[in-house]
Design a protein around this nucleic acid. Structure first.
Lengths: 112, 112
DNA sequence: TAACTATTTCGGTAATTCTGGAAATACGGT
DNA sequence: ACCGTATTTCCAGAATTACCGAAATAGTTA
C-alpha cells in the first residue's frame, strides 16, 4: 500500500462523524445499511451524510450497491485488513532487539 | 476507547507527512529518533515538524524523552494496538452469519 | 554569564474541510 | 408520463488546518 492511500483512508476515519458511520457499517456486517437508515440513526443532514459517504467510498473503505431506490452501504473488510497490515508492517525493522513492540503472535480478532 | 480519541489518532495519521513521521518512528523501534534526525530525513521545516509532532503527541501515538539538548521521539506501540483493537472490535456484532469479515484467527503480525 | 545547539512558539497566509439548505437526479410504481 | 421516495449535487459560509520564516525558549558547555 502507498502512503497516500493509507493517509486518505486514515483521514476518512479521522472525524468522529465518519468514524461513527464506518463503525455502524462494521457492526452491520455483510447485510450493510441503507443510506436512509444511517441518516436516521446518526441524525445528520442527508447532504452531509452523502458527503461523508463519498469520502469513505473514494478512500476504498466502504462500497455501495443499489437495491431499487435505496443504496446499501457496506464496509470493505479487505481494505481495513490491508490498512491495519500497512500500519504495523514495519514495526520491527529498525531495532532488532525490540521485544516490546506490538509484533507478538497475538490473534487479530480473538473472539471469532 | 472513546470515539473522539480514536478519531483524533486516526486524523493524526491521516496526512502523508505525519504518517511518514510515524512510520519512521515505528521503524526506529524502541531506540527512537531525535527531532533533528527526523527533520533531516524528511526534509521539512523545523517549525512544521514541531507542529506535526505535537499533533501526534497530543493524540497519544508517540511520546518524547529529553536527552540533553535533543528530544528523542518514540512510537507508542500500546496506543497503536489499542487503536487497531478499537477499529475491528465490533466487526461481527450485527451479522451473526458473517463469515467474510476480517474476524479470522489470523495472527496479527505473522513475521514475528 | 555568554555562546551554542536543539527545538518550540508566534504570526500570518493560503488551502482545505465540514456543514446543510435548496435544487437536481435516480428509480420504481401507478 | 407522472408522482413519491431516496439520494446526490450545487452552492456558500464558517471553521480548521498546513505551512514556514522569524523570534523565542530550553539545555549544555566554556
Amino acid at each position: 500500500m502507498k502512503v497516500e492511500q493509507a493517509a486518505t483512508q486514515l483521514e476518512a476515519l479521522g472525524k468522529p462523524t465518519r468514524l461513527e458511520i464506518y463503525r455502524a457499517l462494521i457492526r452491520a456486517g455483510e447485510n450493510g445499511l441503507a443510506v436512509g437508515a444511517l441518516q436516521e440513526s446518526l441524525n445528520i443532514a442527508p447532504s452531509t451524510l452523502s458527503h461523508h459517504l463519498k469520502t469513505l467510498i473514494i478512500s476504498g473503505l466502504i462500497s455501495q450497491e443499489r437495491q431499487a431506490t435505496t443504496l446499501i452501504c457496506r464496509a470493505n473488510y479487505n481494505s481495513m485488513q490491508d490498512l491495519v497490515d500497512y500500519l504495523v508492517s514495519e514495526c520491527c525493522v529498525g531495532s532488532p532487539s525490540d521485544t516490546t513492540s506490538m509484533c507478538k503472535p497475538t490473534p487479530f480478532c480473538k473472539d471469532c
